[in-house]
């Protein structure tokens, strides 16, 4: 069947406009599939380039080894320090950032006058838009010397500094997502509570907040995702030595481990960096899965 035969069977020959429409439909379909293709390519490439080193080093030794000495004569590739640092750093930022973000969101959603809310929304937008290297720069020049003097430690570039920077960086997403969840709570809920004699503050915290519960959870999970994926800002303030994490020592995160050695790495060391990226990617995928479950839960309500 030639081209003309094909055109005839679909009725295109007699109707060129239909051919045109179907072609355009196809073009849009392809554009729509670009996102799907990108996710596939990223996943496949990370697995292909990340698995060999894990197999060569041994998964147990890689994930639970406590020493990372990639350039030593007898190199060791244990990434437990990075995993723990990422978890502690993220946990710390969530612990400080979520309460601040939560109270701020409740205030803006229900108590703040309209003008103040607009100004604060602009502030939060600016905070979200500040490049991470600028946070890193301010952290380097204020936090690091500040921590050294305040806590009397030899070097202020530490997990502590990274936690503070991460806290500031996750605040905007925690506030914004909580805010839209709180905005979506119907006023009738609150009116009922007020009519029963609860004060306004009691109503906001005992009726509105529980009603927006899953949205606030979403905000927290999103904050975790932001914190665990951040690289440049904490690279500038965390000192970058592959220690087991503790508050005032210089540490490396999963992200900064990749960034700090990538430019001069080779051989197994380079492959191991891709394995770290694969581990980081797994963390992100778990977080994405939780976000999706929360979203489905929201739709049911």
């Amino acid at each position: 069947m030639g081209i003309s035969g094909f055109l005839a069977t679909k009725g295109y020959a007699s109707n060129p406009r239909r051919l045109m429409e179907d072609l355009i439909h196809l073009v849009f379909l392809i554009l729509g599939l670009v996102a799907v293709g990108s996710v596939l390519v990223i996943t496949i490439y990370l697995i292909i380039s990340g698995l060999p080193a894990i197999v060569e080093i041994g998964p147990i030794e890689f994930l639970f080894g406590t020493r990372w000495a990639s350039t030593a004569k007898e190199p060791e590739f244990g990434i437990l320090p990075f995993i723990l640092t990422s978890i502690y750093g993220t946990g710390g930022a969530i612990l400080i950032g979520v309460p601040i973000g939560f109270f701020c969101a409740v205030y803006l959603a229900r108590i703040a006058p309209k003008k103040l809310r607009e100004v604060m929304e602009l502030c939060i937008g600016v905070l979200a838009g500040i490049p991470s290297v600028v946070y890193g720069l301010v952290g380097m020049t204020i936090l690091v010397p500040g921590i050294r003097m305040l806590f009397n430690v030899p070097d202020g570039a530490s997990l502590m500094a990274a936690i503070i920077v991460l806290t500031v960086m996750i605040l905007p997403s925690v506030i914004n997502v909580s805010l839209s969840a709180l905005d979506a709570v119907p006023r009738e809920y609150e009116e009922a509570s007020l009519a029963l004699g609860a004060t306004d503050i009691e109503t906001y915290f005992r009726v509105t907040v529980p009603a927006a519960k899953s949205g606030i959870f979403t905000a927290i999970v999103l904050g975790i995702g932001r914190a665990i994926g951040e690289a440049m800002a904490i690279m500038m303030v965390a000192g970058n030595v592959a220690n087991m994490p503790s508050l005032f020592t210089s540490v490396r995160f999963l992200t900064t481990a990749i960034a700090s050695e990538m430019s001069y790495s080779s051989g197994l060391q380079r492959e191991a960096l891709f394995s770290i990226a694969l581990v980081l990617f797994l963390f992100i995928m778990i977080i994405n899965a939780i976000l999706n479950m929360l979203k489905k839960g929201n739709q049911k309500i």
Binding site: G32, A35, I42, G229, A231
Partner: peptide, 29 residues
């Protein structure tokens, strides 16, 4: 255009996944 709900969900899921991936991973890939 899309009529197939499954395909729409797939594309939207892919877009959401992309927006969650950290920039360092984009850099590597």
């Amino acid at each position: 255009y899309a009529r197939n709900q499954k395909l729409v969900e797939l594309i939207e899921f892919a877009a959401e996944t992309l927006s969650g991936i950290p920039s360092i991973i984009y850099g590597l890939v």
